[in-house]
């Protein structure tokens, strides 16, 4: 080894202030284990004033690779990754690395905040100038803050998209004029009901009588107003667990769940027809419509199919119309009696 090599090998020749700037979290201790010098950021973190003269194990508590409490044991783990705490800040796990100095003159321990960076900076109010430009801690703080901001923004976007989706779904399954369910909304509810093997329900198909006259005589705006009033009547006649739908110009369907008794269904139908046939005042004119109804029940089918049930309710409705409007017909499957009109 040449003389120059030997000098470089053994001596840095760094002034204390230089050491402070390069390694603001260093701890330099002498052969007895007393602290000769501590970096300014380390002193801020330790929060125990001037660390000079203190025993190194009074300042730090080394836990990895194992608990260490003597100088020879500390110098024996030279170069290894150390897990340690400051006795003045015992909650935050820090990282470090130690090297022995030439001629048994002590050692230099350098410390990093590791994953405790955010807590440490907050706990001790560290500033930009507490870190060396070579230390990425400031960049980590920056990234952490940027992630907080973008995550919040992304969450807001997701919330808005979800709300928009709910609104679009509601629009897709409801009738814009009356606010009742539309054909798609009815189909969705039927599919939902039929998932339950023991579902019992009735479909009541209602067609307005004399609606065309209102449209022709008073105009479409009045016709629309009548449809809105009809929707209000239907809504008031069903429970929250039922569904009222408008599936065509003046065609409505009531889906009555848990309801299978013909006499009850007939009573409901009669009440609906009664209310529909009351005169209403629309745009200054008195007009009167009415309703014809056909009903079918899920218990008539071994394997209820929504389309078949709607067709059968329609057939029963047609029977009501044929018999002179303002009537209710309960569907009877072929093989039993023919569809029978009830007044």
């Amino acid at each position: 080894m040449s003389r120059v090599d030997t000098i470089l090998h053994r001596v840095i020749g760094l002034p204390g202030r230089g050491l402070d700037r390069l390694l603001p979290m260093h701890l330099w201790f002498g052969p007895s284990g007393a602290v000769n010098r501590a970096g300014p950021t380390l002193e801020k973190l330790a929060a125990r004033g001037d660390l000079r003269g203190r025993d190194v194990f009074d300042v730090i508590d080394i836990r990895q690779p194992r608990a260490i409490d003597s100088l020879p044991a500390l110098l024996a783990v030279e170069g290894a990754a150390l897990g340690l705490r400051l006795t003045g800040l015992p909650d935050l796990p820090l990282r470090g690395q130690v090297h022995g100095l030439a001629g048994g003159s002590g050692g230099l321990l350098n410390i990093s905040l590791g994953l405790s960076f955010a807590e440490a900076v907050e706990a001790r109010g560290l500033t930009l100038s507490d870190f060396s430009p070579c230390d990425q801690t400031v960049e980590l703080l920056y990234l952490r803050e940027a992630i907080l901001a973008t995550t919040a923004e992304t969450r807001r976007l997701t919330d808005r998209l979800l709300a928009a989706r709910h609104a679009a779904e509601a629009r897709a399954t409801s009738d814009a004029l009356t606010g009742l369910a539309n054909r798609r909304g009815l189909a969705a509810r039927l599919d939902e009901l039929l998932l339950r093997p023991d579902a019992e329900f009735a479909l009541m198909h209602i067609d307005l009588d004399y609606f065309k006259q209102v449209n022709d005589e008073l105009g479409h705006a009045a016709g629309d107003e009548v449809l809105v009033r009809v929707a209000q009547i239907l809504k008031s006649e069903v429970r929250d667990t039922d569904l009222a739908a408008r599936i065509g110009g003046d065609e409505f369907v009531l889906l009555l769940s848990g309801c299978d008794e013909p006499s009850i269904l007939s009573r409901i139908a009669r009440r609906v027809m009664d209310k529909l046939s009351r005169p209403m005042e629309v745009e200054g004119s008195i007009c009167q419509v009415g309703g014809s109804i056909g009903t079918t029940r899920s218990s008539l089918y071994a394997d209820p199919d929504p389309d078949q049930m709607l067709r059968d309710a329609d057939e029963a409705l047609y029977a009501s119309k044929r018999q002179g409007r303002g009537r209710h017909t309960l569907f009877r499957p072929p093989g039993l009696d023919a569809a029978r009109g009830l007044p």
């Binding site: 955010a118 900076v121 907050e122 560290l126 500033t127 400031v138 703080l141 952490r144 907080l148």
Partner: peptide, 8 residues
């Protein structure tokens, strides 16, 4: 004032 640790 700028507080380096004031992210949260």
């Amino acid at each position: 004032h700028f507080d380096l640790g004031g992210a949260a």
